[in-house]
Design a binder for these strands. Sequence first.
DNA 1: ATAATTAAGTCAAATATAGTCAAAGTCAAC
DNA 2: GTTGACTTTGACTATATTTGACTTAATTAT
Lengths: 156, 156
Amino acid sequence: MRNISDVIEGYLKQVIELSERDHIEIKRSEVAEKFQCVPSQINYVINTRFTVDRGYLVESKRGGGGYIRIKRIRLHQKSDVIAEVIQRLEHGATQVMAEDIVFRLLDEEIISRREAKLILSAVDRTTLLLPLPTRDEVRARILIAMLFTIKYQSNT
Amino acid sequence: MRNISDVIEGYLKQVIELSERDHIEIKRSEVAEKFQCVPSQINYVINTRFTVDRGYLVESKRGGGGYIRIKRIRLHQKSDVIAEVIQRLEHGATQVMAEDIVFRLLDEEIISRREAKLILSAVDRTTLLLPLPTRDEVRARILIAMLFTIKYQSNT
DNA sequence: ATAATTAAGTCAAATATAGTCAAAGTCAAC
DNA sequence: GTTGACTTTGACTATATTTGACTTAATTAT
């Protein structure tokens, strides 16, 4: 007998599979009720099994009529290049590094000219206006976040 | 099952959409009656969904013959929309403001879906990871920088 | 003018969800 | 039988919605 997290994972994947649409919406409390577990177990399952790396995007809303929405995403065709670039950014990014990376992505036709300008304007030192070394760390995080977005395009 | 606020939001947007004029006038009590809710629910919907950042202007009048008037602000000159939006950002931008603005630009077809995602990922609080109020200031600067880039694109 | 009536506005409490985090439990590998 | 990764649990937190008592403003009747 498998553990309850695996069972819930399987259930959710089946629901996604059978769904017409590219996403499903669940009520955390209902799923918890169905499997006789505490609601936060659902968060655990989602945090460990429905991650971006595994190809899922999750959104949610609290309050009345709240929900958890799980979407499947597909990888960008050039995701290897992006993954490689993200690795280089892990320990901070200077403006020159950022420019090199953006020009490479442009060169590889992973981003458009307009997107390149957009990215560069966001991470320019006069935009961030933060002291070092914070500036290079924030720049790296912004670049990584944007690259992730490009890497994992949702199916919609 | 959706919550009543979302239903009322959808209804009002549809009424605006189908309207000949650029604004609609509703009677708060009638709408409340139609959706079987208390009148102040209508204020809640208007205050949370028909904000300036989302491109709406609301006026009202009390007393006999009172009404609530909702106007969709559709500006056709893209640069005007951007200029207006930049002004609102001058004193910092919360994540909710940023989201409202980006969705509006998407709605007005000034940016693409992918660009919207790119921008939102860059200014997400988990990306910036800075303490307030710095975070809101940096977010505003990044948004302004990107909007300028979009506004003054060279045509070459 | 003043009062009565008719609307809309405000605000905070009650309710309905979901998220976080860390302690406790489980189980396989060593 | 200890260790460490993974899972389970629940107390506490955060956020969104719903509701209603009370307030304010405009119009109408006297």
